[in-house]
Write a protein that binds this DNA or RNA. Structure first.
Lengths: 348, 348
DNA sequence: CTAGAACGAGCGAACGTTCGTCCACTACAC
DNA sequence: GTGTAGTGGACGAACGTTCGCTCGTTCTAG
């Protein structure tokens, strides 16, 4: 009745006062615990809806020592791959009744340390790390002593963190083998930054496929780039000025592959006739480039879901006995490799 | 000294015990308030770092009634435009010391109501709504009585919410006027879902430009779609089968424009010679399509920043006296309209 | 009839903070 | 010597919950 001006949100005590019971009993009813008579139950429940009661999760968390919230540190929310990962993670978290607090790092790759600390201050139950620069940041290790469950998309030095993801060696292998199977002998590749573990693994798969086909593994075939469209564009021009004889390019991610297609267009090279192109990741765009892009599907959405499942399992079990997962990848043949319209089937 | 097993996080009381003062004094030192002698100050500070003290923001929020967190409801985190908006919002929020809790809605567009409630349960200081289906959801109005500051990217019925964004009429106007300036007379358009306010405004701009140029405003020129690449693809085929005489298409967002380019390619129509294409939004991809896409730049990143600034201003001022903002848009001429390589300058 | 179970509800304590008030002391001018 | 500032720090209370214990009543079985 005598509310003060700033409309202080109604608490369980207000509900209790309105239904003539103790606030503890009210709490029990609202959580469906304890035994309460049907009559007072209804009285409390209707008082709660009348007053528009909304529980305060902060207060609850304080006593239960669980926030039902997980933190998500990501290097770049607008990267299409990471986006899919985040969507998968968020949806799985929601299904399991958890909120997601996001924390981004600086564009220059720093600040992951700060982000993790901010999340710990908010007492998240666990953290998902999708922060590639973290691979080089030793300060993460210091945070680990806080004993908070963490699942990471990348390896972190000294962390011993649980990782999720897909088999990147296999990814590079499938993409490159697809090209050797089609009879290509001079296959260049454009990688992400070499310091990244993912780039290293994909490169290893590329080399393995070359080896299987009895092809020489030549350093002039490899060009490093930055995972941006523009980076793929420029790397293609560098690569082709060094090796104009290439008949195929394996771009180690679809975003760069778009730059590759664009560069080949400006150079007057038809795809796939003059130069075949294979990408990686299978972003939505890949099916709509000109020509449509052959690529290896990496299940980022599912990886996000899996990250949350693992994390929640760690939380439930006290971080013990949970093993990381490696999700399978799959070749998607389209026109950019000259195989999309044929009866070509990837050799598993 | 006598810690129990599960490594309960160290609290301000632990720090106090380790430095021989009351925990309230410790709290003051840690927050730089009150007057404390330099000697005990140092003692407390070093005890805090020794013990690895991390403040519990939950407890703080409980008493200060402010979580320094804002909620972000988005319909689709992997949409490139929304991604940019979210990045802008997150970065601005972080700069101002606020965390961001994300909440997505169901793929079918429902659940915005549930998301907002979940955020209120977590007592966020304010909410940013980037949820287009909300425009039709009357239940949002019910939540408004909770008096939480909200800034929305879209109009919400009965909400009277503060909105941010850009001038969508102007967007449609600039894009279409660009085409009429180039001499096109038969200009089709592919819109987003008609129930959306954004689509309506852009369509109005389109019609206004046609009017300015003395062109008839024909219903057969308008095709509704779904903002997906595939939707743009199919809409183009429908549109051209009805009106094969079109010389230009204005796609009301870049994602659909990619589908338009792809469809024109399959139909054997050269862009821009046989059919010019103009998009909207200026996603990163737009500069790398074949041919590069003429579009209208919509400042989503800046809109995200502005949303947070407005929200924080509302929170600080008790929601009074804050006005929404409209950010300017800008034509980006590229090759898909046949103007990119010329000396063409957009009027205005 | 009575012992004990089962039920319904109350109550104190705790979670980790912040905030305002109060107290004890030192120091200084009168 | 007393009065008055000022300083350093203690302390109680509150924020909104959950949890476990206690206690009185009613029901049921012996």
């Amino acid at each position: 009745m005598k509310r003060s001006r700033p409309a202080k949100p109604v608490s369980v005590k207000d509900v209790a006062a309105n239904s003539g019971v103790s606030f503890q009993t009210t709490s029990k009813v609202l959580n469906g615990k304890g035994s309460v008579s049907e009559q007072t139950r209804k009285r409390i429940l209707s008082a709660a809806t009348d007053l528009g009661y909304v529980p305060n999760i902060l207060a609850r968390s304080l006593v239960t020592r669980s926030t039902q919230a997980i933190g998500l540190v990501a290097s770049n929310f607008s990267d299409p791959n990471l986006s899919r990962f985040i969507v998968g993670a968020e949806q799985e978290a929601r299904r399991q009744g958890h909120a997601v607090i996001i924390a981004s790092i600086e564009p220059d790759g720093t600040g992951g340390h700060r982000a993790v600390r901010a999340l710990i201050e908010r007492r998240v139950d666990g953290i998902v790390l999708a922060d590639s620069p973290a691979e080089e940041d030793a300060r993460y290790a210091r945070l680990m002593k806080h004993q908070i469950p963490i699942v990471s998309l990348h390896d972190v030095p000294g962390g011993g963190l649980l990782t999720v993801g897909s088999d990147h060696v296999q990814t590079g292998l499938l993409a490159t083998r697809h090209l050797t199977d089609l009879g290509h002998h001079r296959i260049g590749t454009i990688t992400g930054p070499h310091r990244g573990r993912v780039a290293q693994s994909r490169l290893r798969g590329y080399r393995q496929a070359l080896g299987e086909a009895g092809l020489a593994d030549d350093l002039t075939l490899v060009e490093e780039s930055d995972c941006q469209i523009s980076g793929g564009f420029e790397a293609t021009r560098r690569l082709l000025s060094r090796r104009p004889d290439l008949t195929a390019i394996f771009a180690q991610n679809d975003t760069m592959a778009i730059g590759v297609l664009s560069a080949l267009d400006t150079l007057g090279k038809d795809v796939p006739e003059a130069c075949a192109v294979v990408g990686c990741d299978d972003i939505e765009m890949a099916a709509y480039t000109r020509p449509p892009l052959t690529t290896v599907r990496v299940p980022f959405y599912e990886t996000g879901e899996e990250a949350i499942r693992l994390l929640l399992r760690m939380i439930a079990s006290g971080s013990s006995g949970v093993r990381g997962t490696l999700l399978p990848v799959q070749l998607i043949a389209r026109a950019s490799s000259g195989a999309g319209l044929s009866l070509f089937r990837p050799s598993k």
